[in-house]
Design a protein around this nucleic acid. Structure first.
Length: 586
RNA sequence: GCGGUGGUAGCUCAGCUGGACAGAGCAACGGUUUUCUAAACCGUCGGUCGCGAGUUCGAGUCUCGCCCACCGCGCCA
């Protein structure tokens, strides 16, 4: 049976064709707007008829009737069609069509092939995590890393070549203070034991010892100048700071399933900012103001007076300089079609100015202008509602958060599954604990702030990773009991169409996976996929409670095993897209 | 002052870019296991969608005004 991957897209195309076939006036302007529907009404719904008819003073219901009458047979055969309300067209998959869709999409490769059209042939650079070196990662660093990685995986799944770039904060005035502190108070034993902890201590000492206007601050500045001029001792120190920091970051990234292609920090662009200054001045985009090189955007209500400061009055670069150089490098060297920046909302102005400047600059020089997206997210705040800041004293270390999550998961798995050997319980706890932290960040719409709370971030029931992982584990358990592998072709060929309410609800949910992926990717909001997976796991759990899989009737058994196999495939694929690992037992 | 984001059930949050009676988790209360993993399932309770106007066949969603919270706005990143 014919079974396109993305059913909503197929219906959209069918309605456009039907509008032409029915000879609707002005049909080229008709946009069906097919989307997933409330299950009470159907699987998909065309909303565009109302607006189209209304604008042309036509009767919406009669337009809908003409469209329905002109829908081609291959579509009509697979959906129950209904016109409802003022002029919605509802499409409900028939049981046979559900079976066809499930049988047709049996592997990750098949899903990927169906989804890959969205970004085929494109290269996307994702700039995420990007911590400052010589500092521990704390809970405030979690969101960028977790959301960024999910976006990378979604883009790759939908066909893009993805370049993961960790734009480290490895350059700037803070290194003068750190070197100042290091040269006076470094403790070799502490460095050997926990280098980054010691560097953080030394930075604090250096920072406290160099108040504004003090001779000590002048000395710290001289250390920075020496570093920038290539003084061997300071360069060697700086290099050590970076290596030590990166090694510590890698241990966190490994636990979160993140592997960067590049760690091109700010220092990498040191020798690339002069070209930025030159081209911005040559094109007249930047001007000198109060000694600094700045960009104004006269067409913008605010940025016509609020400057984008690309070079400081003392001639030094800042993050605007390096971000401009970075955008150019990504466009020229990586041939990026799109660049995604995953940082918190406080940098919204910066990126808006950056994007405006890049577009003008690239257009003036004839460079291709990539798509530029700032993926913002809210801050993680303390109980006082204020953002957690690196310098505000006792911030919670990311490592400590993950450790605590794993500890709590271990206690739970030991209580629930005491019969499992300890090593396996440890392994399960690592997946469940870290997954719970990742999922907690991914299931929430990223734009709102939230107050940090151990209990919230480490919750293990409700809409959380363990709920999804548990559904996966139960499916594996069924296949162990059945003695067949998920996706066994002989079993699936014997399947009959879904029949019970539980089977049908689950099958209908499965067929909407493409919409969830599309929505999450287009909007760069992974929580849409997270919510879908939660609903899918819920439908599976209801089905599981209502309909026993391993029954004697071979046809019923086969179709339920098909549903189990496909739920497993989509849950595993979806969780992997979010950056989570899965389990076969828990 | 200008601008950004947010304000939805007791708590934490969704709400697919304007669609059908506003949803979920937690909490509270009640029920389900001699049957594939009860980390589950089923049910009950619970909302002036911050406030007020407006646009629309239709508004939690768009426009305007106001209130509250957090944040940004020239040499930190």
């Amino acid at each position: 049976m014919h079974a396109s991957f993305h059913l909503a897209a197929e219906l959209d195309a069918a309605l456009v064709a039907a509008a032409a076939a029915a000879g609707l006036p002005d049909h080229a302007a008709f946009s069906p707007e097919v989307r997933t529907a409330d299950p009470r009404h159907g699987d998909f719904q065309a909303n565009g008829v109302l607006a189209f008819a209304k604008a042309r003073k036509l009767n919406p219901r009669s337009v809908a009737e003409q469209l329905v009458g002109a829908i081609p047979a291959p579509v009509r055969d697979r959906f129950d069609l209904a016109i409802a309300g003022p002029g919605f067209i509802n499409f409900t998959l028939t049981p046979g069509a559900l079976l066809g869709w499930l049988q047709a999409h049996a592997s990750v490769a098949s899903l990927r092939a169906g989804a890959a059209a969205a970004h085929a042939g494109q290269t996307w650079v994702v700039d995420y995590s990007s911590p400052n070196t010589a500092k521990q990662m704390h809970v405030g660093h979690l969101r960028s890393a977790v959301i960024g990685e999910a976006i990378c995986r979604l883009l790759a799944f939908t066909g893009a070549r993805v370049i993961r770039d960790n734009h480290l904060g490895d350059w700037g005035t803070q290194f003068g203070k750190l070197i100042y502190g290091y040269k006076r108070w470094a403790d070799p034993a502490a460095l050997a034991a926990d280098a980054i902890e010691e560097l953080e201590r030394l930075y604090k000492l250096g920072n406290n010892a160099t108040p504004d206007g003090s001779p000590e601050l002048e000395e710290a500045r001289r250390e920075l100048v020496r570093l920038q001029q290539g003084d061997p001792e300071n360069v060697a120190l700086w290099r050590t700071f970076s290596e030590v920091s990166l090694a510590a970051f890698e241990r966190i990234y490994e636990r979160l399933g993140i592997r960067f292609d590049h760690n091109l920090g700010e220092s990498f662009y040191n020798d690339k900012v002069d070209r930025v200054y030159r081209e911005l001045e040559d094109t007249g985009i930047a001007v000198v103001s109060d000694g600094a090189l700045v960009v104004f955007h006269p067409e913008h209500p605010r940025f016509k007076t609020q400057p984008f400061l690309v070079r400081k009055a003392d001639g030094a670069s800042n993050y605007a300089s390096t971000d401009l150089a970075t955008a150019l490098y990504r466009t020229e060297h990586f041939q990026a079609h799109g660049i995604v920046y995953v940082t918190d909302f406080r940098q919204a102005d910066h990126f808006e100015q950056l994007f405006l400047t890049v577009k003008k600059w690239f257009a003036a020089r004839g460079y291709r202008v990539p798509e530029l997206h700032h993926v913002t997210f809210g801050a993680v705040t303390g109980e006082d509602g204020k953002a957690l800041k690196t310098r505000s004293g006792d911030v919670i270390r990311l490592k400590a958060l993950l450790d605590e999550a794993v500890d709590r998961a271990y206690a739970l798995v030991s209580a629930k599954s005491a019969e499992l050997p300890e090593a396996e319980r440890r392994a399960i706890a690592a997946v469940v604990g870290v997954g719970a932290v990742q999922y907690a960040d991914l299931v929430q719409n990223r734009s709102s702030n939230y107050v940090f709370s151990w209990d919230k971030m480490l919750a293990l029931d409700g809409n959380t990773a363990p709920y999804l992982l548990y559904a996966v584990a139960r499916i594996h358990s069924i296949f162990r009991g059945a003695g067949v592998s998920p996706g066994d072709p002989a079993v699936e060929a014997a399947a009959t169409p879904p029949d019970t309410p539980g089977e049908i609800a689950l099958a209908r949910k499965l067929a909407k996976f493409p919409d969830a992926v599309r929505l999450a990717t287009e909007s760069l909001r992974p929580h849409y996929l997270g919510l879908y997976l939660f609903e899918l796991a819920g439908d599976y759990s209801s089905f599981y409670a209502a309909d026993k899989v391993l029954v004697d009737d071979p046809a019923i058994r086969a179709r339920r095993l098909l549903l189990c196999a496909r739920t497993l495939l989509l849950l595993q694929t979806g969780l992997e897209l979010l950056g989570l690992r899965t389990l076969t037992r828990m």
